[in-house]
Design a binder for these strands. Structure first.
Lengths: 231, 231
DNA sequence: GAAACTATCAATCTAAAGATGTAAGACAAA
DNA sequence: TTTGTCTTACATCTTTAGATTGATAGTTTC
């Protein structure tokens, strides 16, 4: 990981020209960071990012022209180790969650003191991830809520435990979108045997068909990582 | 949500008796919180929690007898609005992530200053979630790493965008385990119409059957929250 | 107003899936 | 040794799923 110094290069993206000017002044006067670009357009901003390769981007995520979150994803996809800090007018938990999920390194409210913005840049420039305490709390509430169902599902009685090893193998192949022939081929057994296993799986999981079996498996923690489509 | 005061009732669980005594003294002397119980056993702790209904539990999560995380889950399952703060010797990102995922309201390192422990209790007592800045950073690194694949999948060309509104409805019902008849009944259209839609969905998603369609949908961010089995 | 797209429905056919019963060999536990 | 479970396998039958073609009516778009 690159070492960032206080002279990191910064790109500003904010559709509000006044705000853009304000931030630029703030950073220029109150810090030693180098503003290498400033634009009111997300699309232009992405192009500027490719061109100037800034260390950090301050991005307004409430823009009419283009969704700021989408812009972040595009920047992340460039894989140029550009760290994006979100600027937002809203402390909406869902927004914060989605921003952090797609790789934002910081999230600062526009209403916050300028010193906090500089501090956020300092932290991100030194390789850390920065969220103000208040937003961290909001984030975690949302985070825990979104995982609550999963946690409960994990503690409920899980019919998957009744499956034999072989049945688990078969179910695993089902969760990859295989049909009878595909499973038989991969397990080197006959198609009729697969049918037997699959029928036993249906009985044990109390479902009527393979789609329901797959859904039960995925909703109850069965090999989530392996559940990739094998077309 | 209950309002917590500085006289919140606290239960301590830590397999190290010396540490347990130390924390008890600290809280008694340095704060106005009320320690209603202290034990070196996770199992006893859970029983004490049921009995004394503390507002907050300080729980060591590195115990030999019982996994601290499991103990937290059991306490959360009681659904008694008991807030658990983890005490841990390790700032392992995976541990922090799992603890927060299952509902811990705080995570404090044993090596941290006693003032920070009191502060954490203050925050949690007032209904917030507290993680020290350093651990927050670790948490987010882990968080973003674990979501990276999903984020990439979301930015890839998503065949789901080609679906019409009606086709999305049909796919939604497919991801709930419905067959043709079920979908037809729920959308008040004929079974043959459903077949037409489903076939169009297969074409657009480039899959061969409904199971693969459902898997594609789930793996590409289609209505994850709604993907519950309707048996 | 024509062209393109969408939603609806039907008929027909083939292939696949699912239900049910039976059974043999392997192996482990009682 | 017997009992039970697991894995394998087959036959048979019914139902569902999927492919294909064609058709009508409404909507949107240009």
């Amino acid at each position: 990981m690159r070492e960032f110094k206080r002279n990191s290069r910064i790109l500003l993206i904010d559709d509000n020209a006044d705000h853009l000017r304000g931030i630029k002044e703030l950073i220029t006067l109150e810090s030693s960071y180098n503003v290498v670009g400033a634009t009111t357009s997300a699309n232009i901003g992405i192009n500027l990012a490719k061109k100037y390769r800034p260390d950090i981007i301050l991005m307004d995520i409430n823009m009419p022209e283009k969704d700021g979150l989408q812009a972040i994803q595009e920047i992340e996809k460039l894989d140029m180790d550009i760290r994006v800090i979100c600027l937002s007018g809203y402390d909406d938990a869902d927004l914060i969650f989605r921003a952090m999920k797609i790789g934002a390194k910081g999230y600062v409210l526009k209403t916050m003191a300028s010193a906090q913005l500089i501090y956020a840049i300092d932290e991100v420039a030194s390789g850390k991830i920065y969220l103000p305490t208040a937003l961290t709390s909001r984030f975690f509430e949302y985070f825990q809520r979104s995982f609550k169902d999963e946690a409960n599902a994990a503690t409920e009685e899980n019919l998957l435990t009744y499956l034999t090893a072989r049945e688990e193998e078969v179910l695993d192949l089902l969760t990859q979108g295989n049909n009878y022939k595909g499973i038989a081929g991969k397990l080197f057994i006959s198609e009729t045997t697969v049918k037997t296993h699959v029928n036993n799986i249906f009985q044990k999981l109390q479902v009527n068909d393979r789609t329901q079996a797959v859904l039960y498996a995925l909703n109850n923690g069965f090999a989530k990582r392996r559940a990739k489509l094998a077309v």
